[in-house]
Nucleic acid binder design. Sequence first.
RNA 1: GCCGGUGUAGUUCAAUGGCAGAACAGAGGACUCAUAAGCCUCAAACAAUGGUCCGAUUCCAUUCACCGGCACCA
Length: 470
Amino acid sequence: MKSFYITTTLPYVNAEPHIGFAYEILVADVIARNRVGEEVFFNTGTDEHGQKIFNAAEKAGEKVELYVERYAKEFENLKNMLGLSDNLKFIRTTSEDHIKAAQELWARCKKNDDIYEKEFEGLYCVGCERFLAERDMIDGKCSIHQTEPQLLKERNWFFKFKKYEEKLLNYLKNPDVIIPEWRREEAINFVQEGLEDFSISREKRRLSWGVPVPGDDTQVMYVWFDALTSYISTLGWPEDKDGNFKKFWEEGHTLQLAGKDQVRFQSLMWQAMLMSAGIKNTNQVFYHGFINSGGHKMSKSLGNVISPQDMVKRYGVDGTRYLLLRHVHPTDDTDITLERLDEWYDAGLANGLGNLVSRVLTMADKYGVSTVNSSVGNVENNSIKKLDIQDYVNHIWELIQKVDKKIQDEEPYKKYKTDHDVAINIVSDLCTNLFEIAHLLVPIMPKTAGIIKNSLENLKKPENLFPRKD
RNA sequence: GCCGGUGUAGUUCAAUGGCAGAACAGAGGACUCAUAAGCCUCAAACAAUGGUCCGAUUCCAUUCACCGGCACCA
């Protein structure tokens, strides 16, 4: 049996789950559900180390361990909230196994002579508790605190990124490793402009909330070295007691999902780390766009935030899944507003799918259709495999439109008055069509698909699936 | 500044070197199984300028507008 690995990025737990991540994990969920006949490992989790989280916890007046615990739960709740697959694996970067894995990866990179110590001199802002870059300063002062930063020296561990330029370019030659194509070109550009080694640790006395660097108790790992490791620690690497790492990472097809701002991290740094440790590279990274609202990035101060919770509350689990999966552009940014969501909901779900189910089943029930042919012969569609979920959903809605038109053209409701058998035949045919639609709907709206199938089996009209909004 | 992208009906998107497709919203119509839903009909667009070409929305250049990236921020 073929094996397939899919993972989202791990969201940083310094805020509530936002719509962009909800979208990412929904896409992953659809892809995972669509891989029938394959063994699928579907991963997500939370990235819980680092300065920002430590600060956020402090600000909340909470112990950092409790703080991350609380947030991790919120993210785990998404599973229920968004109707995600049962077999979703959730990895936390503060879990013991993960910490060991991160340290082992470090050790392997070090053994391969890719990690070295270097004295680093920089301008440190006490207020920010970090070193400032050029653009963080105005007139030599911290742009946030308006104070002059101190010149500080710190010893950090660095990763030999530059060493991997050629190997990365080679990796990037394969057109499949990054979707969409222009992001791959972006990645190639980054490398061609030249890479610099990057620091992967921080002094513990400045930041204690991180994974201890093996063999150096004065330093902790910088978050991303730790966080990126989660893609394999979740599989049980390095011990691999259950054989998942071998089965899914080494022998399977690996697919990572990430936002468009992640190219450097996922397709370059992480890949270089894998190369250094002698581990197979990711087969494919799929970068999606961002979701904005009203022409702007969502932000609390603008008051234009639409959260996954808001959506589920208003449109239900499957309604939310439908709206995001059908209307968010796979790779470009998408602008959504409540008005638009309402329109999309009414058009696609109330007037479209919901109404069709209602009219077909009303007739089936009333006319006394006896059984429904529930074969799903030739309804194959491989758009999801090509990572084009929008196309897949659009295809389903074309079928819905076809069935609506068929009812109009064949007029079973009229024929019933003169010839019951003819009408019953037509409606029974319509039921088969509806069953096919329900079948295609499974990865997109699993619960609704189940209700429709069930209604067809019992030939009983279900509760109003999607009440109109206006 | 450098690199890349985008600009198509009111809105969101699609396709194409040779009549520009759709969905939603809008107008009208015949019907009634249905959630005043569905079906039919109608109206509606290639940012601007120049070039290549028999012919450009599509290729090239310029302008205007918008967006993204340019690393220690995850």
